[in-house]
């Protein structure tokens, strides 16, 4: 039973990525722009998946690394085994949310930002910066962030005050409803 439930198996099933193919050469970590800032580097992430231990799986889903990953795809573009680490990272983030294991630090910044972004699309069909920033500030409680940048952007016409929404908003709402159900 445990065998089926391991993260490694879920990853294989959902993304098609077979983590056991990783032979730990470390080329991903060597090229990763944020490896130095991560709690677990990309090759360590792959190793943690390989060991198939409940505790390790949990530790991984709680890590900040999975949220720091920029999806820049440098790792896979140079991976000798062509292992799609970005795809694995996407899956890990979604699993982390699903199991409520979000990393504490990321939960204050990166995660609320993504959520605010999706909220914006849900409501308007497009991203709308002022709304996004406001929403994010409320979620992250970082009211003062970028307080000097915003007026500058405004003055340069880079922050439209009114959202330019999709006309067929119903369609967008439907999409969100359906995909959340899927």
């Amino acid at each position: 039973m445990h065998q089926i439930k391991t993260l490694s198996n879920r990853i294989r099933k959902n993304t098609g990525v077979d983590s056991i193919r990783c032979y730990q050469c470390g080329k991903c970590s060597a090229g990763c722009p944020l490896a130095g800032d991560m709690d677990f580097t990309p090759n360590t992430v792959m190793r943690m998946i390989q060991v198939e231990e409940k505790e390790t799986d949990k530790k991984l889903l709680q890590s900040e690394a999975i949220w720091l990953c920029l999806s820049c795809e440098m790792c896979i573009s140079r991976c000798p085994m062509e292992i799609d680490i970005p795809k694995v990272m996407d899956f890990l983030r979604q699993e982390s949310l699903k199991e409520g294991l979000q990393n504490k630090s990321a939960n204050h910044n990166i995660i609320p930002f993504h959520q605010s972004f999706l909220d914006m699309i849900r409501f308007t069909g497009r991203s709308y910066e002022i709304g996004l920033i406001a929403d994010y500030k409320l979620r992250s409680k970082k009211i003062l962030q970028d307080i000097t940048l915003a007026p500058q952007m405004l003055m340069h016409g880079k922050l439209p005050i009114f959202p330019k929404a999709v006309k067929n908003r119903k369609n967008i709402k439907e999409i969100f409803k359906k995909t959340n159900m899927l």
């Binding site: 470390g26 990763c32 677990f40 580097t41």
Partner: peptide
């Protein structure tokens, strides 16, 4: 040369 030390948890070198 940009590498990593996998014995130090993939620390960039």
């Amino acid at each position: 040369v940009r590498g990593a030390d996998t014995l130090l948890g993939g620390k960039p070198v």
